[in-house]
Amino acid sequence: MNQQTPVLQDQDIVYTFLADLKRTAREYTTAVTESNCPAVRQMFEQLLQSTLKLQDQTYQLMAQHGWYNTSSPAVNQEITKQMQTYQQTQMQTNQLIQQNLNFGQPTSG
């Protein structure tokens, strides 16, 4: 009996699938941020969440088989520092948006 060796190994196929899921998630994220119709935006948000869930399941499968090498764990202090920086930036951005939304609106008086 002549058995042929598969062209792609399972690891390669799953890695390609994971890469495609990552690309799809980026595309859905862009679609969400650019949608001005609430129904369309909600549809893309649901598709994004579904894709992220599938991406996580695929990653977990790869990690169980030792097919995905992760980077070394980040130091908790660095993570906390980055989170604080991002939260401060988000707060400043929200303040700027609110100031600009209120700019030019009639004042009661």
Rank of each mutant, 00 (worst) to 15 (best):
M83F: 08
R26G: 11
Q49D: 13
T16R: 09
R23L: 14
Q88K: 05
Q64A: 15
W67H: 04
T93M: 15
H65T: 01
Q9G: 05
E27C: 05
Q87W: 00
T33W: 07
R26C: 12
V7Y: 10
T93F: 12
I97M: 09
K81T: 14
T93V: 12
W67P: 01
L61D: 04
A31L: 12
Q64I: 07
E45Y: 03
Q11A: 14
Y28W: 04
V7S: 07
Q9T: 15
H65D: 01
S35H: 04
F44C: 01
N69T: 13
Q84V: 01
T51W: 00
T30L: 14
K53V: 00
Q60N: 14
L52R: 11
Q92M: 12
Q87K: 07
L96K: 04
K81G: 06
K22M: 11
I13F: 11
E27S: 05
Q99L: 04
K22G: 07
V14L: 15
A19R: 14
P73C: 04
T30F: 12
Q42M: 09
C37R: 10
Y15M: 11
T89F: 08
Q57S: 09
G66I: 09
Q42W: 01
T29D: 06
T80W: 02
V32I: 13
L48M: 02
A19S: 15
C37G: 05
V14Q: 13
Q95T: 00
N69Y: 03
T29C: 02
L54H: 10
Q90I: 14
D10R: 11
Q88G: 03
V40M: 03
R26E: 15
K53S: 06
Q88L: 03
Y59E: 12
Q57D: 12
Q84K: 02
Y86W: 11
L52H: 03
L18S: 09
R26A: 14
T51V: 04
L54R: 14
Y68N: 05
L8T: 00
D20S: 10
A25N: 00
L96R: 06
T30R: 15
Q87L: 06
Y86T: 09
Q77G: 05
I97P: 02
D10M: 11
R23C: 11
M91F: 07
N36F: 12
L54C: 06
N76K: 15
D12K: 11
